[in-house]
Amino acid sequence: MVEEIKRVVIGEVVEKRPQRVIVKVEKENFASTLNALKALSFNRLNLLTAIDFIKENQFEIVALVYSDEKKVMSIVKARIPRDNPEIETLIHIYPNAFKYEVELGEMFGIRVIGNPDSMKPFVLEGWGDLPPLRKDFDSIKYATEHYESRNVEVKYD
């Protein structure tokens, strides 16, 4: 399977363990890689999410795609800059990417070009702060500012 993926993908392909292949690509090739993988029987998008690597000033976009035929899970990753983050939509490849993309906008502030609902509220209505899954969002500070204290002292280290 790894050889087949290497043939169609421009990027780094590593077999992490049986049934897990990690594919690292450039952000320009992210959508085209997934398109190629879909043609290679990776029929299902299991998860689309992001990770905030704040030290490197980058977001990592992660798509988990699974092939029911080959029983292999591909973890496709691409790094994008943290300032003004944007990716292309995947809805024409995997229709269920739609809400995951809305989530990326809401939780990380990543704009998805081609998704009409991108950056619209999904689960957080009326949110006026930093996107909450970014590492620089301080949830304890947010909670103390927005909610009344119950006068219970909790120590965090």
């Binding site: 299991n46 998860l47 999410t49 990770i51 229709p95 809400k99």
Partner: peptide
């Protein structure tokens, strides 16, 4: 953990 993403089963069952 640095990041944990949960693959909830019901996400695609509701949307779309």
């Amino acid at each position: 953990p640095y990041r944990v993403a949960i693959r909830g089963v019901s996400m695609p069952h509701m949307y779309p």
